[in-house]
Simulated assay, not measured.
Amino acid sequence: MAGIKGNRRILYTKKIIKESLLKLLETREIHQVTVTDICKNADINRGTFYAHYKDAYDLLQSMEDELFSQIVKYISETPAEKYYDSLLLKVLELIKENKDLCKILICRQGDNSLLDKLIFIANKADLEHIYNASDEINKSYSNYYIRYIVGGCIAIIQTWLENDLPESPKEVVKIINSVSILSNTYITNSNTNHLFK
């Protein structure tokens, strides 16, 4: 019984530490946040923080890793033919549940690590299969195609987050799928036949 209470305490402590960081990141950049700031805001001592994380960067990285682990889990649980709707909806609902974190990761971070992670996930999810591209797009161009699709999805999600999620996740699924269909139609009908077999 003591173990369960201990685990609950650890989970609660991590939760308030994460909430503290997110609150601080509303008005500051990550490089401006100190462990002291996080501890003061969470009303914990530094030793408690250091029992779980090295610094603010480690904490943010941990939060990002948890989010992406959940996305990878969704991918492994979802049949490929349901990626268009079911998987995309699960991911968008996860983003909505973690709105504050996702605003920081998608809208405010100025590096390409998010895009690189999403491209890795897209490769893992076999986006060629999702978009029926495996028979049409030359294999040597598939990396460009995946970057194009993922980049477009990120841009839509970023706009959605910046506008404070006015549409439901289901509506955003429709938007992404509509744009993807239009895009695929344009690529197929364009004069860029050198991209195809």
Rank of each mutant, 00 (worst) to 15 (best):
A2Y: 04
A2T: 03
G3L: 09
I4F: 10
I4P: 00
I4R: 09
K5H: 12
R8A: 03
I10T: 12
I10C: 05
L11Q: 06
L11H: 03
T13M: 08
K14I: 01
I17R: 03
K18M: 07
L22E: 00
K23E: 09
L24E: 02
L24C: 05
L25D: 01
T27N: 13
V33W: 01
C39I: 03
C39V: 02
K40C: 00
K40P: 00
N41S: 11
D43R: 15
D43I: 07
I44F: 10
I44A: 08
I44V: 12
N45A: 11
N45M: 10
A51C: 01
A51V: 00
Y53F: 12
Y53V: 01
D55H: 08
A56F: 02
A56K: 03
D58F: 04
L59V: 04
L59P: 05
L60N: 05
Q61T: 10
Q61P: 01
Q61M: 02
S62Q: 02
E66H: 00
E66D: 04
E66Y: 00
E66A: 02
F68R: 02
S69A: 07
V72H: 08
K73I: 04
Y74A: 00
Y74W: 01
I75L: 05
I75S: 02
S76Y: 09
P79W: 00
A80Y: 06
E81N: 09
K82M: 07
Y84R: 15
D85Q: 12
D85F: 12
S86Q: 13
L87S: 06
L87Q: 05
L87Y: 04
L92H: 07
L92F: 09
L92D: 05
E93S: 10
L94Y: 11
L94D: 02
K96D: 10
E97T: 09
E97Y: 07
N98F: 06
N98R: 11
C102A: 06
K103A: 06
I104G: 02
R108Y: 15
Q109V: 08
Q109L: 12
N112A: 04
L114V: 10
D116G: 04
I119K: 14
F120N: 13
K124Y: 14
K124A: 11
A125N: 05
D126K: 10
L127F: 15
L127T: 10
N132I: 08
E136F: 13
N138I: 09
S140M: 09
S140Q: 10
Y141R: 08
S142L: 14
S142K: 12
N143S: 14
Y144C: 03
R147H: 15
Y148S: 15
G152D: 07
I156V: 15
I156T: 14
Q158S: 15
Q158P: 08
W160G: 08
E162I: 11
N163F: 14
D164T: 02
E167T: 00
S168F: 12
S168T: 15
S180V: 06
I181E: 13
L182P: 01
S183T: 13
S183A: 12
T185R: 14
Y186S: 08
T188M: 14
N189F: 13
N189K: 15
T192R: 14
N193D: 13
F196A: 06
